[in-house]
Design a protein around this nucleic acid. Structure first.
Lengths: 143, 143
DNA sequence: AAATATTAGTTTGAAATGTAACTAACAACC
DNA sequence: GGTTGTTAGTTACATTTCAAACTAATATTT
């Protein structure tokens, strides 16, 4: 943001939101049309699909999602028969969440769409740009 | 996203959202604490402050915000006495929105905060990175 | 072991958002 | 000049989110 050329489009929180919004919308139709999922559900599905069974708490931490969001997303995915819960014996507050066969299939399918979609976005950038972009986003997310 | 190292953190829609969320949260307290504004209101305020009086329609287009969001944000800013509406004579469907003295003051104040905040984010990146980041975000937002 | 504090997760009521229908003004067409 | 179509903006309702209170289980303190 150079000094008095202040432009909203260059203010990071704004620019990030505009880009995130556009990208999200683009990907939304895949999980929404095909599986009637919400963004929160898609995220939970991906965490379980990619990183394996874990508790809701772990998903909260990994995805920086609030526990109420996760709770609802888990409920919705359970209703869709995409995951099951299993109480842990040593600590009955904890539930291990695991994808069902159906859930894994949905994950595999959406995973493929994600790669295609991501590739179509990446096509607009050089490898270096893509690299810088990734590193910057990661850094910002951790602030 | 290199082939079978698929990592959620590198999937653009996800990474963008995480970063956008983090950045937004960081800036939120300024407009929220000091003026009780929402993100939509802040955006409208900034558009008027930076680019001058205009109709709600123009804000919709410039900010890619849906008209109901803009309508509500305008209503809220009006209640806070940050803007006034003026019906256009040649077309009475259109209202020119303009910041009041109070609104301009709020804008000036938040504008300063925005610059400081943006600078604090930018500090983590080189000028080149920052440049790549801006260009990429802009491109994605336009897809 | 009783009392207190934490922790995982859910529920609830309020605020915000999205979608679609609506109103009022203008435009175009016959 | 009346009918039809568009456009700017608002309203209403349904869905989603946010914050805070809640439940049930485990940990800690005394």
């Amino acid at each position: 943001m150079t000094d008095d050329n202040f432009d909203l489009g260059q203010f990071l929180p704004y620019a990030l939101n505009q880009a995130a919004e556009a990208a999200s919308m683009g990907f939304q139709k895949h999980y929404r049309q095909r599986y009637g999922m919400l963004r929160t559900e898609w995220r939970v599905l991906f965490h379980l699909g990619r990183y394996g069974s874990m508790t809701a708490k772990s998903i909260c931490e990994r995805a920086s999602m609030h526990k109420t969001k996760v709770s609802r997303a888990v409920g919705a995915l359970e209703q869709k028969r995409f995951l099951v819960r299993e109480e842990q014996e040593n600590d009955r507050r904890l539930e291990t969440l695991s994808l069902t066969r159906q859930g894994s299939a949905a994950y595999a399918d959406l995973y493929k769409s994600a790669k295609v979609f991501d590739a179509s976005l990446s096509a607009h950038f050089s490898a270096q740009e893509r690299d810088v972009l990734n590193r910057c986003l990661e850094k910002i997310a951790k602030l």
